[in-house]
Amino acid sequence: MRKSLFLLIILCIVSVSSAQSNYRGFINSGYSFGVGEYGFDQWNINTVHGVEFLHNSLFIGGGVGFGVSTENHRLKTYSIPVFADIRYTVGNLKVKPYIEMKVGYSELIDEEHDGGGYNSGGFYFSPSVGVSLPVVRKTSVHIGLGYTYNRAIYEFSYIPGDGKTGSENKTFNAGGLTLSVGVSF
């Protein structure tokens, strides 16, 4: 999975360099409201770069992000997603609606398990819808709403009734409902 994603990102970079007139970059910031038993609230920022096709309606690119949990001030959880991004802009209106999908891998790191136990990220999936508002030529502001699925695996240690130390791996979704704001250039 990691090798495939790496090759996809390299392909996107090569495509950008060969089609600079169709290059498009995005910088987004957002907030995810944790959903589910293990979902946590998280502030995130990401950057995406790629190429536009079909009269600037279809964008294909790759990106990387960084997120930090905001719920527990004593224990921080960080995420580092690497993903492919596809965005389709509907119509040619002044305010342009879009649908977007990010797919990739996200590494999760938390202070509780760092060094003491096993923790790992996993599959990352983030579909969203929103609107794009043009500011000046080739620069727009974007507002979106979506869902972020961020698979994670943690090893939890415990001491059962017999006094021996045990451990258990749990797989869960550390994602949530995401509101984002960004700019493209």
Results as ranks from 00 to 15, higher is better:
V90Y: 05
S132R: 13
V51K: 10
T77M: 13
S21P: 00
N173H: 07
S140F: 09
N169Q: 10
V183I: 15
L11T: 12
H55A: 06
L177Y: 10
S15M: 13
F59I: 08
I153G: 01
A152R: 10
G117Q: 06
Q20A: 12
L7M: 14
G62K: 01
M101E: 11
G144V: 05
K170Q: 08
S79F: 09
M1Q: 12
V181H: 03
I9K: 02
A19I: 11
F66V: 14
G144R: 09
V16R: 11
F123V: 09
K102Y: 02
V14A: 14
D162K: 07
L93I: 05
Y149T: 01
R137T: 10
H113G: 04
G115F: 07
I143V: 15
Q42E: 14
D41V: 12
Y118N: 05
A174M: 08
V141M: 14
S4C: 07
V35A: 10
Y105G: 01
S57A: 05
I13C: 12
G115T: 06
T139K: 14
S128E: 11
S32P: 00
N72G: 03
G36E: 07
H142I: 13
S184Y: 04
H49D: 07
N44Y: 13
D41I: 10
I45M: 15
A84C: 07
G146H: 04
C12S: 14
L54S: 08
V16F: 13
S128V: 04
V64G: 09
G130N: 08
L11E: 04
G34C: 06
